[in-house]
Nucleic acid binder design. Sequence first.
DNA 1: TTAGGGTTAG
Length: 606
Amino acid sequence: MTGTTALNQTHFLLLTNNSHQSFELSKSFNEKGWLCLLKRCNNMEEFKQVHAYFLKCGIFFDSFCGSNLVATCALTKWGSMDYACSIFTQIEEPCSFDYNTMIRGNVNNMKLDEALLLYVEMLERGIEPDKFTYPFVLKACSLLGALKEGVQIHGHVLKTGLEGDLFVENSLINMYGKCGAIKDACDVFDKMGERSVASWSAIIGAHVCVEMWHECLVLLGDMMSSEGRCRPEESTLVSVLSACTHLGSYNLGRFIHGNLLRNISELNVVVKTSLIDMYVKCGCLEKGLHVFRNMPEKNRYSYTVMISGLAVHGHGKEALEVFSEMVEQGLEPDDVVYVGVLSACSHAGLVDEGLQCFKRMQFEHKIKPTIQHYGCMVDLMGRSGMLKEAYELIKSMPIKPNDVVWRSLLSACKVHLNLEIGQIAADNLFMLNPNNPGDYLVLANMYAKVQKWDEVAKIRRKMADKHLVQTPGFSLVEAKRKVYKFVSLDKSSPQWNIVYDMIHQMEWQLKFEGYVADTSQVLLDVDEEEKRERLKCHSQKLAIAFALIHTSEGCPLRITRNLRMCSDCHTYTKYISMIYNREITIRDRHRFHHFKNGTCTCKDYW
DNA sequence: TTAGGGTTAG
């Protein structure tokens, strides 16, 4: 028997089950026959057995076969890097192929330092890296975030004249992107002679890494209109979906979903997870749930986006059900999933459940709480008025509390009117972050609520001394396939007079239903009438009026805000949802509010 | 006659 002919499972069984027969049989194999058999192994045990026979026979193997042994161990799913290494070290004169294999194997197994050391060793032994070496080495740099080493290796690429290789160039873009060096990534991309879909995906991915969301969308357009007319692939669209998610571009996200469905028969788990995240964060929980429920394969990422999604929409009970399903499926929860779980409890006011989950995380799943977990717990306790307990928790934390934690406590104190703890929270907050105008305003709001105008004035003076100006709030609303932006007291819309007429009309209806403007939200030293005038022109109200005019009856409204909502806008929107019989979804910096029939899913705490 | 490369999610 020679070569690769007629090698099958029967031969393998002969080899492993009957040592005498198999030894006889093995003598009739040449090295390629062995090789073929080795490649057919199903696990490391089988491989080791065959390899032992291989040594026992003492047949001479050329370097090609030796390299293949290393490759099989290093690169197959069932392989072992340790075993690969032991064979590799026995090769007297390893070639670049051997080094490439070992580097790649180490990168795949996240042994990144090891991969870079092998590259150095290769150079020291005078073995010339080739066009296959660099993609692996650069990937190690990108995963390590090792820009300095990446730049050095880029130098080697130039020296060896491999900069024109498409794969090497794409790897360079990826390395620079992952290391946050977007300019260098663009430089490589701009200088490329030829670009593949992967080049475009890499440059879009690089912009995702540095959170340049708008540029991602522009690049997608460039890609599709470029000379090569590259068509985006799944990986490209996953990056673009991430940009849509952050920008709240529901329409583009939905368009991409349609595009994916038309062009790809079965979307993979990564794409579906990105779709869920996009729908949920763009306010469409139902669509996200639909994708999630129809997934044949779910992993920890898919569960995390769904749980966190349900959390920001205030569906705490459902989030806990999905979490139980995840554990039942045998997926081990990690710290990120627990951030979703705890924030679900916090957003839905599930205090007991939250406290229980916090314990379970530490004692059953052995996860040390991070600052985010503490943040959720402070929020959860604060929401239910457990202000002392929340403060005690902060004091007992083994890690230094950050501004998010103190801000949660301050907000809770504002709602429950605990001036003493509120002031402590504010003092700590200002020590960590003295220049955030929003924090001063929350504190001022707290004092305004109890009519302590002296304190309010003091805080405003402090703000003025520090030249802190309130971040201008804006609201975005989609109508007629366009996004419109409104700022407070906005008169920039070509139809502003119609909008203000609508505001006026709404005012009468609101008064009739019992709405009273909460002028304590206006911290300016102006009379009540002026305060009411300012209140009714908050950007959110203008956006609602505009949307009511431009959408048909019963059509849900979707609004995105850059800041948290003021409590007057919240009350106002509850009334509007009832009077005009509209579902209104508002995404603010913190969560989603769904207004329907005069109530909000946040249960008036945010 | 001879192997091997880049991009994606919380």
